[in-house]
Nucleic acid binder design. Structure first.
Length: 972
DNA sequence: TGTCATTTCCC
DNA sequence: CGGGAAATGAC
């Protein structure tokens, strides 16, 4: 029926039949027909074709918005928003749901009322919610009638309507009320004299309402539009009603808007399984999925998969922690752009997609990617790429000027090398070096390239209308002046003409291999460049700038301008080059930025306040980290999460980066807590990274610093993680307070006792050995908050027994009881012994320590720190074993020969080998460990080195010893 | 007890 | 207006 009305073209005889014989709405009673002939009364004698022309119908001109907030009655004080038309524009023109009555003459009434979205009991029903219009501070309920006529036109615009969400408990009432009015009206349409409903009708309404109430979808409604003619005080339908598209309740998790508000990271390895956090608008954990998909250049979905998470990973309907699915190809050698969106299975609704990228896994190798980079299809010809001239498609098409330019400037040195290379590769150009340089200058190729990224307007360049956009190759020539001539060349692409010029231009640059053209970002063409583009763009501009050789101050300001260009997330070119690990580009940037005056660029922050250094650290690009630090990057900037680069390095166990950073971080910064309250040292322990712990301690990290969240020292954390080696190191080698209590009063020993795992015992033994006190009590849980909480609970639970006691009495009881409780539990806190009652072996261990023994152990503790006598003599000793010069020399030798591995074995540090192998200098870590661990002497090391035939190393050690002896004898 | 939906409140 | 969040209730 609805279709019939809204699309008159589809009318058929059968639809006429059904209309004639259908429900009450069509007023089929013979009486109404005879009583008042309708203008179209004679339709039955017309042929179907004629009917099409004649029959009145309603047409929805403007649909209502898809989402709207339904408000409860209690929130209807004041005005809120009204239902707008779907094509309403926020700031431009507001529209409203609008219908038009067609093929009708004379006055009519168009009515709007609230209906169910779907058939409830075989047909659509009035909805229990109320469609209200505010008039004189009163909410007038639906139906809303709108008078139309030839004079005012036949369009009914329904402005200012709101939806009142009837509370569950009132659903029945509302439904019954609406049904009554409706039925009465239909009855009166047949018989004006009817003024009330029969009991039978009432009962029927009630039972219907009851059934419907249960099945009614409270989060989705429709507008129902009807047309009537008023005759003798009653309304008679003119045609079938039409229904709007559904309006969904914006507040509901079932129909509310799906939205990704924030995301943790935008990149994952193509192997997937990387943890990502997203914050989302309200979702139901049982009804939400995270869809990854990829589009080809025609915007067809070519791949999709879903993030992995369980219901437990959906946090309070507002956040999801999931793992990325693997990309369809785990062997990719360059970053692939995909999209990510929320998907709601029940209604198939999706959020706006956001960009996400898959990067090659480390395993598939950087080398492979390197090779790929030189390929034509990927590389856009930038000046940078000119270093690999064979890969530059533009170059091949150049038509050299017939007469070489005679005047030659002395080129700057940077440009010179570049051009030299090109010349070597393109001997056929018939120009000497300086001629070619001049040629390039005139051609101004770099400006073309940069224009391309900025939004290259192909139409403008090519001459309006002259050439269509669907070309894919073009020749570029020059007549010797600085003018460019661009010629179209065949091969139409037959693409969507709506494609933006940027993409078309891009195609022209990569057109050597037609089969591989892959314009990306078609979907998001309006938004800014992606990271790779931005980095390339910046370097292109930089090179261009260098060619121009502007005066210094101009150069500086232009450089700032270039690096001031940001992506939406605040990442600048430098950030991007790091994120995508574009080493060549980075090098180019650094050569410019390294000049010293560009600190602000080097320390540029994105929207998360991450500097390039942060990103490099996160990506474990230690070379880049090193370079950044060398050229003056500030290692003491914190992100919005309160993280120093050092925190991030430690979090990710990127040990080389840690070392680099520690060279520049002051010891104060080593102890800085991030917004999780943790110092780098805490994080290192949490990551079970002994090496990092050692490095940090060596660099001056305070082992007794508490985390600000729970008041734990690094020892607490080590114990919590079951890290025996870290705990041992801390106890043996540092002055950590073994009995330090966290905010709950718990010592490390408390933690060791309750630790679930086989390490529990070893930890306890270790802690006890270093005079941990098993009788130290933790704090009793008390505090105003808890007491009050108790009080309220009491009050709530008690009243059953006595109905009539007054507030004061309640309060007194409550207070009394809490006091009692406090007294009871105040007895004492729990000791480690208390906690060990269900762990027999641990208990036995603890019980061995009688209070007296604790005293004794204090003395034992003093012993192990074998303060090197030499240290007092030789102030500059860093390592404790070797002076820095010797250490460097030894490391150099052993790193090269690989001898450090054997040495590690001989020193019983075999377990270290794997963890230090991949570091910049394993020997150094080995020696640091040896030093800190303290059970090795220089003589030991010397004899081991001798045994290993590391003669050079032995010599270095001897040299040092000789020097020491000499200097100490001098002193004495 | 925790989670989620419903309802009310408030800026 | 338009939005966020607390309070309450149901499971």
């Amino acid at each position: 029926m609805m279709n019939c009305a809204s699309s008159p073209g589809s009318y058929s005889q059968s639809s006429l039949d059904s209309q004639d014989s259908s429900s009450s709405m069509s007023a089929p009673s013979p009486m109404s027909v005879t009583a008042s002939p309708h203008p179209y009364q004679n339709i039955l004698v017309l042929t179907p074709d004629q009917v099409v022309a004649e029959l009145p119908y309603l047409r929805i001109i403007e649909q209502p918005v898809e989402k709207f907030r339904f408000r409860y009655k209690s929130e209807m004080m004041g005005t809120h928003g009204s239902i707008l038309g779907r094509s309403s524009d926020r700031n431009r023109k507001k529209t409203y749901p609008t219908v038009e009555l067609r093929n009708y003459d004379g006055p009519a009434i168009i009515r709007c009322s609230l209906y169910t979205t779907h058939q409830v009991m075989g047909e659509r029903m009035p909805h229990t919610h109320r469609l209200v219009v505010r008039a004189d501070n009163e909410d007038k309920d639906d139906p809303h009638d709108f008078a139309v006529s030839p004079e005012v036109g036949y369009r009914a615009v329904f402005q200012g309507m709101g939806i009142i969400h009837t509370a569950k408990k009132h659903i029945m009432d509302e439904l019954v009320k609406k049904k009554r009015v409706r039925l009465l009206e239909t009855l009166r349409a047949r018989n004006v004299n009817i003024t009330s409903l029969t009991t039978k009708d009432e009962i029927k309404i009630r039972s219907e309402a009851e059934a419907e109430a249960k099945r009614m979808n409270l989060n989705s409604v429709c507008l129902c539009f009807e047309a009537f003619v008023r005759e003798n005080g009653v309304l008679k339908p003119i045609c079938d009603p039409v229904y709007s598209s559904p309006i969904n309740n914006m507040k509901s998790a079932l129909t509310g808007e799906l939205k990704i508000c924030r995301i943790d990271k935008h990149v994952s390895s193509c192997l997937g399984n990387e943890e990502v956090f997203i914050l989302v608008e309200k979702v139901g954990k049982k009804n939400i999925r995270i869809k990854f998909f990829e589009l080809d250049d025609e915007d067809n979905e070519v791949w999709c998969d879903y993030g992995k998470f369980s219901e437990l990973d959906v946090h309070h309907q507002y956040a999801i922690v999931f793992r990325t699915p693997p990309y369809r190809d785990t062997e990719i050698d360059k970053t692939v752009d995909v999209f990510l969106q929320l998907y709601r299975p029940t209604d198939g609704d999706c959020s706006e997609p956001i960009k996400f990228a898959y990067k090659p896994s480390d395993k598939t190798g950087r080398a492979a990617r390197k090779r790929q980079r030189t390929s034509l299809t990927d590389e856009i010809p930038l000046p940078v790429a000119l270093a690999q001239p064979t890969s530059n498609p533009l170059l091949a098409s150049f038509v050299p000027p017939s007469q070489a330019s005679p005047s030659v400037d002395q080129p700057n040195s940077e440009g010179s090398d570049l051009f030299e290379d090109i010349l070597n590769e393109c001997p056929n150009n018939g120009m000497n070096s300086s001629e070619f340089k001049e040629f390039m200058k005139n051609l101004s190729i770099s400006s073309l390239v940069s224009t391309y990224v900025e939004t290259f307007d192909a139409n403008e360049l090519l001459g309006d209308g002259d050439l269509p956009l669907d070309f894919c190759t073009m020749d570029i020539s020059t007549d010797g002046s600085s003018k460019l001539t661009v010629t179209k060349r065949t091969t139409p692409l037959s693409r969507d003409p709506g494609i933006d010029a940027t993409v078309a231009a891009k195609l022209s640059h990569v057109s050597k291999d037609d089969t591989q053209m892959q314009p990306r970002n078609c979907v998001q063409k309006e938004t800014s460049m992606d990271g790779e583009q931005l980095a390339k763009w910046a370097v292109a501009r930089l090179n261009e700038l260098l060619l121009e050789k502007p005066p210094k101050h101009v150069l500086a300001s232009k450089v700032h301008e270039i690096f001031g260009k940001k992506k939406d997330d605040g990442d600048g070119p430098l950030h991007c080059a790091i994120l995508y690990d574009m080493k060549d580009l980075l090098k180019q940037m650094f050569t410019v930025l390294g000049k010293g005056q560009y600190r602000p660029i080097i320390d540029d922050r994105n929207l998360k306040d991450e500097t390039p250094l942060h990103l490099a650290v996160m990506q474990n690009q230690h070379e880049t980290v090193k370079t950044l630090l060398t050229i003056g990057a500030n290692p003491n900037i914190i992100t919005k999460q309160g993280d120093l680069p050092l925190h991030l390095a430690v979090s990710a166990s990127h040990n080389e980066c840690i070392s680099e950073l520690l060279r520049y971080n002051s010891s104060r910064d080593c102890n800085l807590t991030n917004y999780n309250g943790c110092t780098p040292l805490h994080i290192a322990a949490r990551e079970k990274n002994l090496i990092a712990v050692m490095k940090l301690v060596n660099a001056g990290a305070d082992v007794n610093k508490e985390d600000t969240l729970l008041g734990r020292t690094v020892l607490h954390v080590a114990v919590e993680e079951g890290c025996v080696d870290i705990a041992r190191y801390l106890l043996e080698k540092t002055n950590i307070d073994v009995n330090a209590a966290n905010y709950a009063g718990n010592t490390a020993l408390h933690g060791a006792v309750v630790f679930e795992g086989p390490e529990s015992r070893e930890l306890c033994r270790l802690l006890l050995q270093y005079k941990a006190n098993p009788r130290q009590e933790n704090y009793i849980l008390e505090g105003d908050g808890d007491v009050e909480f108790c009080t309220e609970v009491e009050i709530k639970e008690e009243p059953e027994s006595e109905d009539d006691f007054d507030d004061e009495y309640q309060l007194r009881i409550a207070e009394g009881e809490t006091e009692d409780e406090a007294i009871n539990s105040k007895a004492r806190g729990q000791t480690s012994l208390d906690l060990a009652t269900n762990k027999k072996d641990i208990l036995a261990l603890l019980q061995k320590v009688v209070p007296a023994e604790v005293e004794e152990m204090v003395e034992i503790k003093e012993e192990p720190s074998d303060t090197p006598i030499l240290e007092g003599v030789l102030g500059e000793v860093k390592n404790g074993l070797f002076d820095s010069e010797t250490l460097m020399r030894l490391c150099d030798i052993l790193d090269k020969s690989g001898g450090w591995q054997h040495l590690a074995e001989l020193l019983d540090y075999k377990f270290l080998v794997t963890s230090i192998r991949s570091t910049a200098s394993p020997s150094k870590l080995l020696f640091n460990y040896a030093d800190l661990h303290g059970n090795v002497s220089i003589q030991d090391i010397r004899s081991f080195l001798e045994a290993l035939d590391e003669h050079e190393a032995v010599e270095a050690v001897d040299l040092m010893l000789a020097r020491r002896i000499a200097s100490s004898s001098q002193i004495s």
